[in-house]
Simulated assay, not measured.
Amino acid sequence: MSKITRHGSNAVLSNAVEYHNFVFLAGITADDLSQDVSGQTEQVLRRIDELLEVHGTDKTRLLQAQVWLKDIRDREALNKLWSAWLPEGGAPVRACVQANMADPRHLVEIMITACR
């Protein structure tokens, strides 16, 4: 049976899970919730870069992204930063939806699946 490695686990979730050469990141949100959607998105993308590096991969190896926005009208602002962050020709499959966030100050959350 293949080994599943869980990181930063609690009773509800793991912050990351490694299986074979796949890395699954939990939904990443901003720390500074006083920022607008652009500021929060920048924080989230920086954090994703950091976490991917910790787990032996990077954004050139993205497979899937799930994006939740508090207000779907912020999609254009998110996409501007997202497109600039992605490596050329490296866009993963992606869903982007409006959602009620656990904390109403959260404006964006992104969940990533990557490979090594």
Rank of each mutant, 00 (worst) to 15 (best):
C115V: 14
L81C: 03
E88L: 10
M101K: 03
K3V: 15
E53P: 00
K80Q: 13
R75K: 14
N79A: 12
V17Y: 02
I4S: 05
N100S: 11
R73V: 12
F24G: 02
V44T: 03
V37R: 01
H7S: 10
L107G: 01
Q66A: 12
E88N: 06
N15M: 10
Q35M: 12
D36N: 15
Q64H: 14
A84E: 15
L107Q: 07
N100V: 14
A99Y: 04
G56C: 09
Q35W: 01
I112H: 01
R94L: 12
A99D: 09
V93Y: 10
A84I: 08
V67E: 03
K80T: 15
V37F: 00
R75H: 08
A102R: 08
I48K: 00
Q64G: 06
L63F: 09
Q64F: 13
M111A: 15
V12K: 12
M101N: 03
W68M: 15
K3G: 09
A95H: 05
A26I: 04
L86Q: 01
S14T: 06
N100I: 12
Q64Y: 14
G8Y: 00
A99V: 07
I112S: 01
Y19D: 11
L81Q: 04
S38M: 08
N15T: 13
M101P: 07
C115S: 13
